[in-house]
Design a protein around this nucleic acid. Sequence first.
RNA 1: GGCUAGGUGGCAGAAUGGUUAUGCAGCGGCCUGCAAAGCCGUCUAUGCCGGUUCGAUUCCGACCCUAGCCUCCA
Length: 467
Amino acid sequence: MIRIHNSLTGEKQELRPIEPGHVRMYSCGVTVYDYFHVGNARMLVVFDMVSRYLRHRGLRVTYVRNITDVDDKIINRAREAGVDWREWAARYAAAMHEDLDKLGCLRPEKEPKASEYIDEMLAMIGQLIANGYAYQATNGDVMYDVHKFAPYGQLSGKRLEDLRAGARVGVDGAKRDPLDFVLWKSAKPGEPAWPSSWGEGRPGWHIECSAMSTKELGQHFDIHGGGLDLKFPHHENEIAQTCGATGGKFAEIWMHNGFLNIDNEKMSKSLGNFFTTREVLAKIKHPEVLRFFLLSSHYRGPMNYSPDQLAQAEAGLNRLYTALRDVPVVGGDLYSPTQAAKDFDAAMDDDFNTPEAIAVLQGLARELNTARAAGGDAHHARLLAGELRALGAVLGVLKIAPEEWFRASASATAGLSDADIDERIAARAAAKSAKNWPESDRIRKELAEAGVILEDKPGGVTTWRRG
RNA sequence: GGCUAGGUGGCAGAAUGGUUAUGCAGCGGCCUGCAAAGCCGUCUAUGCCGGUUCGAUUCCGACCCUAGCCUCCA
């Protein structure tokens, strides 16, 4: 039984797909106005992990993650650069795919772009007006009338009075209520616009997700996810829109991932404390390091980004790859579900407890190290290695050959080449056979200073890895 | 001010009404020419004050602190 924390109720509930055996899930993707930052990466990796795990448990998954390509930020950036907004969005959508591929995120079944769903948005807005939930304001914008939707605030636990008491909502003269939000913005010169019954204009951000999710998954589906900061107002507004237009149910379970902070503060442009995923990927040994780090803490809690944390993630992964090292894989990985596999599933079944699942992997590594030690059970070791790889794959890690992992370097260009290293090792082997220990140690130290660690194995074999 | 989440050992991070995850780091041992890796052992913890209980880190209440949302934001 898979249990998931539902933001709507604040409690864990059993996942019972509306259509038996088939989970339909949607997550709000990124706005492609720039390279996405590591905070975005957390959300993308988290929901990729969710979809991978549900598939691992034998469920069919239809995962839809949108691309927001109609947005103020895109329009402004494109204008500053003197580029067409479509071209600008396409450029960063392509970059996003490159980085996501590196991070091991599978492509969702559908990746709708907002600009291709204008008709669906207009239809939904029309329905909202017909149902009495929306109105055209004096400035031409079409607004959602939050008073009319009784459950408004249910997801975020906010009441309209409390929101107003906040007194931080700017008063817009065109709105009946400061909390009303825009569905359709009337056209401004030089901005993208589409014709509509309410005049030329473009969609508001919130209506995009309602229209795309309804079109691709139907109005009633299983899981809707996104970052915690989208809970209010974005997801609250999505509920108001979809339920207001269709009169039916929307997502059964709402999932929100916590923030990735820097120095215990949320990343933000104003504080200048954010990193793009692209620049982080360039600094680490392998993309799996970032992915492993992002999954090393429970998805709902906050976590802190720091180089030290990445180093710890690399160390953890090192241990797992070390266990897999030199264990022959014959005809693909052998997988025989054991207690560890059951423990892994039990941890993941409980609201995707990836830290505990990783602990199971570490336990498996220990078992594997024992089995493959001199005098151990080589056949058992192969089974364990296959299992470790299979479970790692569910989290999207341990996907490369151990040798590749150990030869990878955080700084791809600097340092010694593989051939250089082999040459020094040969020189050291000669010194060793002459029992010239000072020379042997000198070479080892020299390599260590270049970031290469040597390991003498039984039988006079020396292997190396980049630290 | 309103609402929400959280405060666990040197670091990160789970779990749990009583038997002290996991990884990194440290210490001791085995192994090694010496190392590295591995294995074995081992030291550090549950913000503060009350309450319930045979017993609370875990449940309840107050307090302190932190973060987030209330405005675009994963």
